[in-house]
Nucleic acid binder design. Structure first.
Lengths: 122, 122
DNA sequence: AATTATTACTTGCAATTAGCAAGTGAAATG
DNA sequence: CATTTCACTTGCTAATTGCAAGTAATAATT
């Protein structure tokens, strides 16, 4: 169900880089095809991992957010980033250091930011 | 690189169910096609996640084992199993309980069993 | 107010990948 | 020595992906 090339990257970028719109994913360095992106977002909604709403101040924009089920993938993504940092070419070095130094605190921070965004709006 | 339907399942089954031969994967409940299995095993070897050797007591058999890089995926797999147990239909309930009750101890056990198998043979 | 731009998509088609059934070769078993 | 087992490969079809172009709705610009 998350066994494809893009779904986990989408979730990672929503969780760690704050991506929220179609355009952000499409323009991201990773080069996903537009129809595939639309399909993956649709499936993630169907699986209950993300939700959609139209932006209140710009009717063209669709805002994607993680559900509780989606944010619960934070430990999985964190371990993946740490593994990649240890064994592959590494991305955001500062982020990796944060994760490694205090994993619990880092995860608590991710959850807190998510909760903040969700208490403000229904 | 692990972004496909089978690679993580193969690693999970090697780590948690002790799978070591082609036949075990092929007959496993998950129904992978034989050419795809061969391809994924080849790629996992190329990525340095598993290694192959021919069985000393049966020249037909190929024994697949996790490398250090492979066993380092244990925290990722553990978090995935826990996430799935919390949000999806759940598999091995006893295993999940072990993981949840003492994650550190569980991971230490996985690593210990791997180290044991690797100190015996070069 | 009309034109242009932006955003989030869809559509059509070619290319890549996956899945299935059957086959191969080497080693073991009866 | 014939049969079985094991780890694959091969050939073909079906499904998925990737690319380029197009569309509908809203927003910004002139």
């Amino acid at each position: 169900m998350l066994g494809d090339r893009w779904s986990l990257l989408i979730i990672r970028d929503m969780m760690l880089r704050g991506f929220r719109t179609y355009k952000e994913f499409l323009e991201c360095y990773e080069g996903i095809a537009t129809n595939i992106l639309a399909d993956r977002l649709r499936k993630l909604v169907a699986y209950g991992i993300i939700t959609t709403e139209t932006d209140a101040s710009d009717g063209r924009k669709v805002i994607y957010s993680l559900t509780a089920k989606g944010i619960d993938l934070a430990p999985v993504l964190t371990e993946m980033v740490l593994w990649a940092a240890a064994h592959e070419d590494t991305g955001n070095q500062a982020l990796v250091r944060l994760m490694r130094e205090d994993k619990k605190k880092f995860l608590a921070g991710v959850r807190q930011r998510w909760a903040d965004r969700h208490s403000a709006r229904p």
